[in-house]
């Protein structure tokens, strides 16, 4: 079915522009599993986490999730520490009006967290090509870690890639299901 759709797309566009063909992504689902390790310290705060997809030039193709303290807490406004996810802040966060619908969410407890996306939502307009999944975690009075997983969007083969963080992130896996 997928192949037929691509063929249909090709014949419709043939002779006009080759570019829009790249817009026909063939992956239907992208799943990211993020493990937040249990960290035994006297003062534990749940980490801020950002999950995004970057192009080769580091520009952000899609923000998938930003978990942070959205309510004002005893130590002030939660947005104060968004910048501690420094790579995300540089590449995207500082240009966003927070919260972002469908992206912003509250901080999560230690454990495995699964977030899934299909090509109807946030990834609707993502052209096929090579990207890098970024998962960045920053913890108040703690450390900061960034895990990156390169992947090809629009490939016909299902795939799962898993990497393990060392400090603030546990297992991070990316599953693509065409």
């Amino acid at each position: 079915m997928r192949a037929i759709l691509q063929l249909a797309g090709f014949s419709a566009l043939a002779g006009t522009l080759a570019g829009p063909l790249a817009g026909v992504a063939s992956a239907e689902e992208l799943a990211v599993s993020v493990e937040l390790p249990k960290i035994s310290v006297a003062e534990y705060h749940k980490p801020y986490v950002a999950v995004w997809i970057a192009r080769a030039d580091h520009s952000v193709a899609a923000n998938l999730a930003v978990w942070y303290q959205q309510e004002d807490g005893p130590e002030g406004k939660g947005e104060t520490w968004l910048k501690d996810m420094r790579q995300w802040w540089r590449r995207s966060g500082r240009n966003l009006e927070m919260p972002v619908d469908g992206v912003s969410g509250p901080t999560r407890s230690p454990g495995q967290h699964l977030v899934t996306f299909d090509d109807e939502g946030l990834l609707k307009d993502l052209p096929a090509g090579d990207y890098v999944l970024h998962v960045e975690a920053a913890r108040e009075v703690g450390g900061r870690e960034l895990v990156k997983i390169p992947f090809a969007w629009g490939s016909d083969a299902p795939s799962t890639q898993t990497l393990s963080g060392e400090t603030e992130l546990g297992t991070v896996s990316l599953t693509l299901k065409p």
Partner: peptide
């Protein structure tokens, strides 16, 4: 030098 949030 670099801050986030509405007012700081």
């Amino acid at each position: 030098f670099t801050l986030s949030g509405e007012e700081q």
